[in-house]
Design a binder for these strands. Sequence first.
DNA 1: ATGTCCATTATATTAGGCAC
DNA 2: GTGCCTAATATAATGGACAT
Length: 375
Amino acid sequence: MEHSFTANIKSVLQKHFKRNADKVFDQSQLIQYINEKTRSANKGSKARSSFANLYAIYVILEDYISKGFHKKGNYAEYEGAVFNKLFTRQRELPFGSNLQNHALNNRMNSEFQKYFPSSEFIPILRKPETNRYWFNENLLKIKVGATSFNIASAVIDIISEYSKTKQDAFQRFIKTCEELQEIENLNPLKVHEFILGLLAPNVDARLFEIVSYAILKFFYHDQIIIWGFEMDKLNKENLKLYKTGKTNANDGGIDFVMKPLGRFFQVTETLDFKKYFLDIDKIQKYPITFVINSEESTKDLIKKIKDNANKVYSIKAIVDKYMDCIEEVINIPTLNERFIVAEKQGCLKAILDEIILQSRVEFSYTNSYDDSIKE
DNA sequence: ATGTCCATTATATTAGGCAC
DNA sequence: GTGCCTAATATAATGGACAT
């Protein structure tokens, strides 16, 4: 039942209930339920996290506390919290902007019941005629020996803590970016180091994609291509790199596209390109440039890809066709070089700005998160 | 406003297959 | 047979749409 966030839960309980903390944990089904729902807290950015049900608890308890019911005992007389207020509030919370009514109406209750089939208490009580909501106080009052503890504010703290943990990694990243943005004129070296540090095999895949995009965009942006339909009417155009969407929303799609050459770029961690070249033996495929999150030399990477293709297709003609579809392989050392080139052209600040911009979009981050969650 | 059903996308678990 | 890897399948957590 224990996972890495359990320690945080216990330390909050410690603060609230001192030596009775462990007993409260053992006695409270609500705390145990929250413990179950916070498993994802310290997992990587790809782990799916649960917010809806926790926030449903959060907003009702926030109402409960704001009216002082954790101190005085006439909650039974209370007319209940208004649906709309609760609903709006949960959407203000970090990551909660798209939450719907489900958790408040039945998902939290039904899931709780799944964990505690024998529990006699339904956590969220409501009166459909008036659209009012209550939290079942029986789950908030925990008896240890002769004393009864109200866990409402402890629960609020735990959920805040969870929410903060989920924000942390990324928020820290954005913060660092913003700090650098301010001192950038004074200390380009630091910015340089920082961005180089982001080019490592262990960084978050989405971040890697963003950083490679920012670097390549400014590496290409002042390269000029000359083209035209007639020899005496030639156009000059800068190479422009476009990002085609959010990383996560772009499964199977192409990550970057370059105008006017029409090159496709795909960022990847693996060398297994099968999915990009499905049915390669039957159909002509569009060539792709791969940006690979690896320190290995380009030569080795290409060799590995080829070995892989040989294993799968075994016929030389098809393997050649497969390899022809790989326009270029860009590894981490190449990105490093291109970063330095772009930097020499004075694009350091622009690259940093681009990283911040793309990150904000990618992680749906806005500054308003900062003050919406209880400190 | 709310219950319900469906879709999407992720993780977790299991089954099956392979090299040794 | 053991251990390991991958593919298939199940499960979970929402988001979205719609009828009422």
